Computed example of a mutant assay.
Amino acid sequence: MDIATLIGLVGAFGLVVTSIFMGGNAAGFVDIPSIVIVIGGTFAVAFVMFPLGVVIRTIKVGLKTLLFKSNDPQEIIRLITSLAETARRESLVALEKVNIEDQFLKKGVMLVVDGSSEGLVRSVMEIELEFMKQRHRQGQAVFKGMGAMAPAFGMIGTLIGLVNMLSNLSDPSSIGPAMAVALLTTFYGAIMANVVFLPLATKLEERSAEDALFMQIMIEGVSSLQRGDHPTIVKEKLQAFLSPAIREG
């Protein structure tokens, strides 16, 4: 589980809820119609802006971002170094018997084992890298769009509440509660945009950059395997992709 995302979400909502309870009127912050118009309206417009499959896939990716932490680049480098040792000790054909869980790396290694040229292997892997980035950008766009729409629906709900309030000015005692309810939709929209949707979009950008780095390491590693580089050279070359702090760690 990605503990950082979980801490951030729980911490942000916890601070808001704590502040509400400290104010002494927590029940006044709960209004079901306001929740429905903000959340329902935001998802409805997301289906207008993007295809249904893209929105559903993005929600699944968002949950995956929350539940799963990213890979360790050092693990990838150790695996590729191990493959280089096997190839040097035996042959490239021996890599066919090695169990490789990562499908991207496995595809590259199998292309090498099949005797494909280095240019072809790199081209195939780089094409997959580029389309991965494109899919991730689409997912980020969904969350950014929802982050923009949530405050807008909050304002729409507020306007609806104000119209209802102004249409019943004959009862002055109802103006205060009606105004409070009207403002709640703006509150919900701001919370959903700035605590959920926009932070998740930024997290997806970070994860996409990490995935792209891992795939670049694998591409260079597969090329090194194909050239028959010494395992030590392979390790040092791939370590160059990492920051000094990660290398030392």
Rank of each mutant, 00 (worst) to 15 (best):
M1K: 07
D2T: 02
A4S: 15
G8N: 06
L9P: 03
A12N: 10
F13S: 04
G14T: 04
L15V: 12
V17E: 14
F21E: 13
A27M: 14
A27H: 07
I37V: 13
I39D: 00
G41D: 09
G41T: 10
V45E: 08
A46M: 12
F47S: 07
F50E: 02
F50S: 04
V54E: 13
R57K: 15
I59F: 14
I59W: 06
T65M: 14
S70C: 00
N71Q: 15
I80Q: 06
T81K: 12
L83Y: 07
A84T: 09
T86P: 00
A87V: 05
A87H: 00
E90T: 10
S91V: 00
L92Q: 02
L92M: 12
V93E: 06
A94R: 03
I100Q: 08
I100D: 03
I100N: 04
E101R: 11
K106I: 01
V109I: 14
M110E: 12
L111N: 13
V112C: 09
D114M: 02
G115S: 02
L120A: 08
S123N: 13
S123F: 08
V124S: 03
V124H: 00
E126I: 06
E128V: 09
E130S: 15
F131K: 11
F131L: 09
G139M: 04
K144L: 15
M146E: 00
G147N: 03
G147T: 01
P151M: 05
A152Y: 01
T158Q: 04
M165N: 04
P172K: 08
S173T: 15
A180M: 03
V181A: 13
T186Y: 10
P199N: 07
T202S: 12
T202R: 05
K203I: 06
E206G: 03
R207L: 04
A209N: 11
A212K: 14
I219L: 10
E220N: 14
E220P: 06
S223K: 15
L225K: 06
V234H: 03
K235F: 06
L238D: 11
A240C: 08
F241P: 05
S243R: 11
G249V: 02
